[in-house]
Amino acid sequence: MKKFLAILATVIMGASALVGCGSKDASVDGGSENLFRTVDEIKSSGTVKIGVFSDKKPFGYVDENGEYQGYDIYFAKRIAQDLGVELEYVSTEPASRVEYLKTGKVDIVLANFTVTNARKEVVDYALPYMKVALGVVSPESALIKAPEELNGKTLIVVKGTTAETYFTENYPDVKLLKFDQYADAYNALIDGRGDALSTDNTEVLAWAIQNPGFAVGIEEMGNVDTIAPAVTKGNASLKEWIDNEIISLADEQFFHKDFKETLEPIYGSNVNVDSLVVEGGKVE
């Protein structure tokens, strides 16, 4: 009996501790405005912290010499250069990008961050510098050409990506197999643990070119989304600075150069540059 009481007490105390934690988190959400750094603060600190992907070639990855490379990185370097500060890369995962901004652990996220309404509520986006839609890649022997063909089948997605939310909302009959890492997701497709894989079309197009036996059956679905730098909610000065930067970079067609340097070696010259690159923040 005594033992039982002790266990009961433990459970109750444990539960109240958990509840206590939860409510604490909820109450501080409102008071977290001052966690970000303004442009002046970044400049005087001498370092800008930019959250990037370290394993998403060709947008953000680390080459064999340990150097960050890619389309996002090319832009990140330019931002740091024009701010006149050192660049500190922070390696982020798709699912943790928002938290990094909310807590001000990075100043900017430049990690292939697709603009969505849900995300707009928690972070502030600057002008876009790229656009994408969703694509679906599957084995050529059992090519998926329309999303309806996926009903009852298994689709591989990466947690926290647009593909995950899009299929959950619009195709509830598709079984989703979710992974934390891109590397694991692609390996699952190769191993046949799913019938197809969906993520941004840029991504699956590039992957299919390099992996014989796989093809992109759906090149464009879902909405055409834009990709933009994101800053902590309320960081107006930094957002404005990036907006102006993107507008002024249009004069030198910066993102076309970026494409040539980082994306063309991967996609080949068959891809229409203007279907991916956005100059001056203007999406037609």
Partner: peptide, 16 residues
């Protein structure tokens, strides 16, 4: 493990 994944990803087009 992350370094491993970075290496795999950086080469996944050329050395799958």
């Amino acid at each position: 493990l992350k370094v491993g994944q970075q290496i795999i990803e950086a080469n996944r087009y050329t050395v799958p």
